[in-house]
């Protein structure tokens, strides 16, 4: 039973990674850039929700919606101001700009909201648990909410990209930008849309993350951001199902490493597994193997 409860909390943590990884993977797929500021958008989302629910005592759902709206706008603004002028620039220049944006968000948060840790009020009351098998297995409700939201987001996003017109435009852009433009697709608007969706998802991930681990500081998003990025690579960057598989595997490995091996080296074990996977499958678990043409 302890195994099962570890597995469930692993899947729950992995769901959060998966939602964050989606933002990385979609932006990478379409703009071919590593958006290092993504982790800090998570943090902003969590702060917005914190102030809405704790300071102004709004209901949790309003807090989440507000966080999603603010982060979506933030994502679009960042894209317009910092990344759009660099469309034609080398990848590394865009990467450094993303790091600059990440520093900016962290330090702006530090100035606005101070470095004192805030205690996040979970969106589901703490202590509400479901017990199964005559009390042998006890799962907190937030764990289930996290897993459920991840599933809903995945289904919605897969439907969106495969069925809707805008989703198809996104796939076309990630396949070949030049050709997409010739077919009459507005590439710039599509990239903006991708950033908007990714940032909105980041807000949801931030709220879920802080509901599970309720300490909120300006650097809250950094480590989950890096881990979700590795999760995206793990599953094959650019692939939406890959983000889900990579995220959940990473979460499960992390919880198992903490439970059965050692807490101190759990991060190192996660990264070691990542290296081994990439050596066996160099494009990630579900990534496309691109053959080089000469």
């Amino acid at each position: 039973m302890t195994f099962l409860s570890f597995l469930i909390s692993g899947i729950s943590l992995g769901s959060i990674y998966a939602i964050i990884a989606l933002g990385y993977t979609m932006v990478y797929g379409i703009a071919k850039m590593l958006n290092f500021a993504h982790g800090d958008v998570i943090m902003v989302g969590a702060y917005i929700c914190f102030f809405a629910t704790s300071r102004y005592e709004m209901p949790p759902i309003v807090g989440i919606l507000l966080a999603v709206v603010v982060c979506t706008i933030l994502g679009i603004v960042i894209e317009k101001l910092a990344y759009k002028p660099l469309r034609a620039a080398p990848i590394l220049a865009v990467l450094i700009t993303a790091i600059g944006v990440s520093y900016f968000l962290q330090n702006a948060a530090l100035l606005l909201w101070s470095s004192n840790p805030k205690v996040f009020k979970p969106i589901v009351p703490t202590g509400s648990r479901i017990t199964l098998f005559d009390g042998q297995l006890s799962i907190s409700v937030i764990t289930l909410v996290t897993i459920a939201s991840c599933i809903v987001i995945m289904i919605a996003l897969t439907t969106f990209t495969s069925k809707s017109k805008m989703g198809k435009a996104m796939r076309a852009c990630s396949e070949d930008k030049g050709a997409a433009q010739l077919m009459g697709i507005n590439v710039n608007a599509t990239i903006s849309l991708t950033f908007a969706i990714g940032s909105g998802l980041a807000a949801i991930a931030g709220v879920l993350l802080c509901s599970a681990y309720p300490t909120l500081v300006p650097t809250t998003g950094a480590m989950p951001g890096i881990k979700a990025f590795t999760a995206a690579v793990f599953g094959g960057i650019g692939s939406i199902p890959g983000a889900l598989v990579g995220g959940i595997l990473l979460g499960v490995i992390e919880i198992f490493a903490k439970a059965y091996i050692t807490t101190q080296l759990s991060d190192a074990i996660c990264f070691a597994v990542l290296i081994v996977v990439l050596l066996v499958k160099p494009a990630g678990l579900l990534g496309k193997q691109i053959r080089e043409k000469v």
Partner: peptide
Amino acid sequence: RLKGDYLAIVTLAFGEIIKG
């Protein structure tokens, strides 16, 4: 043996392992 972003992410992972 890896290329591009995959090499980058493995070096990142390696740095974190050394730190750990």
